[in-house]
Amino acid sequence: MTGISDLSTLLAGLRPEPDPVRYGFVTGPDAALAPHADTALMRFVEAEGTTLILPFEAAEAAGLDPVFACRRITLAIHSSLEAVGFMAQVAATLAAEGIGCNPVAGYFHDHVFVPEDRLGDALAALKALARTSGREFD
């Protein structure tokens, strides 16, 4: 099953869905983080160390020193991994509101992690983007 690659269709069909969980990013040697990998929302390995995205409180309880208290917004439309410009448009929309984001692509959806205190602003900006592209919200 392939996703949608047409930018207009992606933007018009964009449905931002907030995750109720507060997340944080942690980093360290892969071996040190291995016990937490199964509970991570994401694991990414770089030359400097492994990054996990974990529930913030769980990371603190494990003594992992999480940074970037954030919330995930799922961009609920099945985007193609080869779609051009979708995440760029999302990031530009958030940047115009002064909201930093950390994007992550899954097979079915793209996700953005935004500062938890800007979640409402980010959702409003993304819904406005979808509306200007043709989507109606209740």
Rank of each mutant, 00 (worst) to 15 (best):
S5F: 06
L10R: 03
L10K: 03
G13Y: 01
G13T: 06
R15T: 10
R15L: 12
R15E: 13
R15W: 02
R15A: 11
E17H: 06
P18T: 01
D19A: 07
V21Y: 02
Y23W: 15
G24N: 01
V26L: 09
V26D: 08
V26Q: 03
T27D: 14
D30R: 12
A32N: 14
A34I: 05
P35L: 06
H36Q: 13
H36E: 01
H36R: 02
H36A: 04
A37N: 02
D38P: 12
T39S: 12
T39A: 13
L41W: 01
M42K: 04
M42R: 14
E46W: 08
E46T: 13
E46I: 09
E46H: 14
E46R: 12
A47L: 15
T50Y: 04
T51Y: 14
T51N: 07
I53C: 13
E57A: 15
A59C: 05
A61C: 05
A62L: 05
A62D: 02
A62C: 07
G63M: 03
D65L: 04
P66M: 01
C70H: 05
C70L: 08
C70F: 06
R71C: 12
R72A: 15
I73G: 02
I73W: 00
I73E: 06
T74Y: 01
T74R: 15
L75W: 01
A76C: 13
I77H: 12
H78V: 15
S79Q: 08
S80R: 04
S80I: 11
S80L: 10
E82P: 03
E82H: 11
A83M: 10
A83R: 01
V84W: 09
F86C: 10
F86Y: 10
M87F: 10
M87S: 14
V90P: 09
A91V: 10
L94F: 01
A96G: 15
A96R: 05
G98I: 00
I99P: 07
I99G: 03
C101R: 04
C101F: 06
C101G: 03
N102L: 08
P103L: 00
P103Q: 08
V104E: 04
Y107T: 08
Y107N: 07
F108I: 11
H109K: 02
V112P: 03
F113T: 04
F113N: 06
V114L: 09
P115F: 02
L119P: 11
L119W: 01
G120P: 07
G120K: 06
G120M: 10
A122C: 05
A122N: 03
L123H: 01
A124T: 14
A125N: 00
A125D: 02
L126K: 09
A128D: 14
A128Q: 15
L129C: 06
A130C: 10
R131I: 05
G134M: 02
G134N: 05
R135I: 01
E136F: 00
E136D: 15
F137P: 09
F137C: 12
F137A: 07
